[in-house]
């Protein structure tokens, strides 16, 4: 990180960093999800090591995301903030309803938690798009 680095350079560096750590985290998550059954037959030590590797990659991904947000300019930070606020609000509303569906017998089984992640991801993208449109 040099002092003469301009805004575009910082953006490129941060995007590259977050892409690398996200790919590594996704690969380790996939390995953790499928490896025990298909590759190492539920060997506890290997699974345990991979859990820590996955957590480490996750931590690096979060740090890279934080760095990206810190290096954005004030308007881009505001756009991200609006996107996150929209995603958080939608996630709370949708998660609350989904959590009640089984209790009130509208569905037979509990909703998969990954559905919540999907809602968060999609609404975050929608929130960012709406905020970008507002300021363009």
């Amino acid at each position: 990180m040099s002092a003469s680095e301009n805004y575009c350079d910082k953006e490129k560096r941060n995007t590259k960093s977050i892409a690398v750590w996200t790919v590594l985290w996704l690969l380790s998550t996939a390995a953790l999800g499928f490896g025990p059954k298909f590759i190492w037959d539920y060997h506890m030590l290997i699974s345990l090591v991979l859990v820590w590797v996955n957590l480490f990659f996750g931590y690096k991904m979060v740090v890279a995301n934080k760095q990206l947000l810190e290096d954005l300019d004030e308007l881009q930070q505001k756009i991200m903030f609006l996107g996150m606020a929209f995603a958080l609000g939608c996630t709370v509303v949708v998660a609350t309803v989904l959590g009640l569906l089984e209790a009130i017998r509208l569905v037979d089984s509990a909703i998969n938690p990954s559905t919540i992640l999907f809602v968060t991801g999609i609404t975050y993208l929608i929130g960012i798009a709406m905020a970008k449109r507002k300021y363009s």
């Binding site: 301009n6 805004y7 953006e11 300019d73 308007l75 881009q76 300021y135 363009s136």
Partner: peptide
């Protein structure tokens, strides 16, 4: 040291 979108 800001994005072009900010200037716009």
């Amino acid at each position: 040291d800001v994005s072009r979108q900010t200037i716009v």
